[in-house]
Design a protein around this nucleic acid. Structure first.
Lengths: 236, 236, 236, 236
DNA sequence: AATGAATGAGCGTTCATTCAT
DNA sequence: GATGAATGAACGCTCATTCAT
């Protein structure tokens, strides 16, 4: 509530600066390129100061992932408010997700990092909470669109299937496809010529198979996409 | 052609032993828990001997992943030969994949590791080739089932979609779902009560949306699954 | 300008201590006897601390050589200021060189080490600069005496010969003789009964052959040497 | 006395092959590039076989140095038999030495290696004997020329100076100059523009100062050098 | 709160040498 | 004599973390 003092502002800025530099290290040299000495050097403070902000290296990784997740959550919220029917709004979310992956391919890596190794064991409950709340926010936004579709009778979910189950499916195929795209050099050799297009196609197939109307055959996909580009993603 | 000498056998066994122990380390303590000193200690040989088998730590990781991939490839081949129609055969592959994930949840991690950081840079071209050939084998097996379905007119793919594109979709959703299941503790809190079931459901939805006959509504899913358990996975 | 804090003093002292111990190792066990672990152990600090002072093993070697070279440079400067004619001053330098070799036979080895293998490749430009500046200082001091001799017409160099060329000759014969003395056990067997005397004799011959007056036959060598011992080397 | 069996020949050849390869390693990658594994690999035998020839790595170094020394000894013997007066013959030896250094700059390194580190301590008395006998042969050849000069009254050595003392002087200045040339990148910066010429000049000065007739001013240096090139070094 | 020197366990890797076959 | 797998001590170096100032 209180206005932050200049001192507090400086401290807050430094925290952002640390993350910025850490991000550069990971992006340019991988996880092993992240190194507390170099961070301290580059923010022109001491290592001790860095440790005042982040209790250990892993906390930095988590914080980076949280930044990414928050950035995406904001985008998702914008996309979910796309003017149009529920099917168009879910499409906007999917499209925003693809856009995010293509525009910030590095951000993807930080979420991946969360999923490996012993990151979790070393971090504070507080940081973990942040991650969870981000996940929940994203889930809530997308599930919200599904619920709206049900409310407007654009969609009828089968018995035993929750809105979250459907979101889980979309999440899974997106995450899986992006993981493969990000790491498999040989996708083309394997016969998948345009994986991004294939992903989009499969998502529409899933939505169609739930009879989420209008079906993908019943509206002009491309013109909707153009509108999303303009109205959500601010692309020309 | 020649019979391996006892000596050669011993060496070969040690290689397997190294991998076995390395696997335990990674499973129990993550990538950073893998440590050449301890491996040497536990196989009761010297570090030099370990290095005679694997030129560096990363080669061990790759070898573990290849073991996993080969194991899965064999399973996929068996599943693809399931006695029945094409839809039942693709179902068998999907079911085998789920089974593999549930039965050997750790194996999954080694494939994940391939996708990170500097593993690739340090390994020999020969090892990388092995990985690629495993990927191709799996892809070929599943795409083969798709091709058979097309040949028997159980399935008509839309213009511009290759069998591999379809496999990519199935691969993506499986990998994504498994990734989330393996790492997100809070899936239940997010509202996804039974993710494994949801995955299975989505896969059927995708296949249905391609009109791969018989549709999931047209056959008795549970009894087929029982047969797969018995005939492919050798479960009682 | 500022007075060093006790802390800084301690650090500076440790640097000297490291060099001292490293020197002992090299002297008693050769280059391969120099080992970072043992140094750390013996200065009762950690390896990391040693590496805070010297970025790699080779830097220590260079630093040892620089110590030696600086020590000699100071001695040369003192000797070059010996009260007397130019011929006596150059004699003082030569005598100081012999003295240095006999008094600190080990120091000689560190300069030799500079001349081998991969030392240079791993060291910082800054350290290399130090070495070069030491070399130049020594060269300048001795060439300065030659120039004074020319100015006072004690010496006329032949056309095409620079003062530095003459110094190079003296340097070569001294270095070569000392190298042989330091390494050839069998010099006596080869028929060289008193190599140190022979070196001194040859140096005088060279100077005589340039007609650097007074010639060695024209002054009392032994009494000059006594004076050098007393006035430059502080020997009784 | 007996003719070597084919087997023995093969073994002897292998010994030469080992040395040849070891030499290449040292030349191209320095002392640390010498490695028993690689030698074994490149002679297409096993490490054990290499060890049958040379009891340890250091023995190989010594053997390489001995090869070099023998090569030079032969050259010196040829040079000492140059047709001409004693002064011309000693000049031929000096010239041969320079030639050897310029033509085979790498050979020089092996003799240097003998002078450092702990090579001697690990080698057999037999190998050391070989080194010593090579040294003696070289010394004897050159001292022989000096003795001939004395016999023919081209030279009168001062009281207390042996022929070997004179050779020691020549040896020292040559070795020293070559050492500096081989290792000091900054010789030009130090003001020594043409060290090889300076070395030659100093050697003549030394010989002149002993009144070894004819003095360098009394004969045509260049035409003699041409003859040496042709008659001793077989240069066109 | 900030500093940065100190820590030291840990790491991956090398390689001369041995010895059973 | 030949082999080459096995050895294991040694090595140089890193870096997250601590803590006295």
């Amino acid at each position: 509530m209180s206005t932050p003092t200049p001192k507090q502002l400086q401290i807050q800025n430094r925290e952002l600066k640390i993350l910025e530099i850490a991000r550069e290290h990971v992006v340019s040299e991988g996880y092993h390129g992240l190194n507390m000495d170099r961070i301290a050097e580059e923010i022109k403070s001491s290592k001790g100061t860095v440790y005042n902000h982040f209790g250990c290296k892993e906390e930095i990784i988590i914080a980076l992932a949280v930044q990414t997740m928050e950035k995406r959550a904001v985008l998702f919220q914008d996309a979910a408010q796309f003017k149009g029917g529920s099917r168009q709004r879910i499409l906007a979310v999917g499209h925003a997700n693809s856009y995010f992956f293509q525009k910030f391919p590095d951000h993807f890596r930080f979420e991946q990092m969360l999923r490996i190794d012993s990151i979790w064991e070393k971090t504070s409950a507080k940081r973990r909470m942040l991650v969870k709340s981000c996940e929940m926010k994203c889930m809530a936004v997308v599930a919200g669109v599904v619920r709206d579709a049900i409310a407007t009778e654009d969609l009828v979910l089968p018995e035993g299937t929750s809105p979250e189950d459907l979101v889980f499916g979309l999440w899974s195929i997106s995450l899986g496809a992006q993981t493969i795209m990000a790491s498999s050099e040989s996708l083309t050799d394997l016969g998948v010529k345009n994986p991004a297009l294939a992903l989009r196609f499969h998502i529409q197939k899933i939505l169609d198979s739930f009879h989420w109307t209008p079906l993908s055959t019943e509206f002009d996909y491309d013109s909707i996409e153009d509108r999303i580009d303009r109205e959500v993603l601010n692309l020309s």
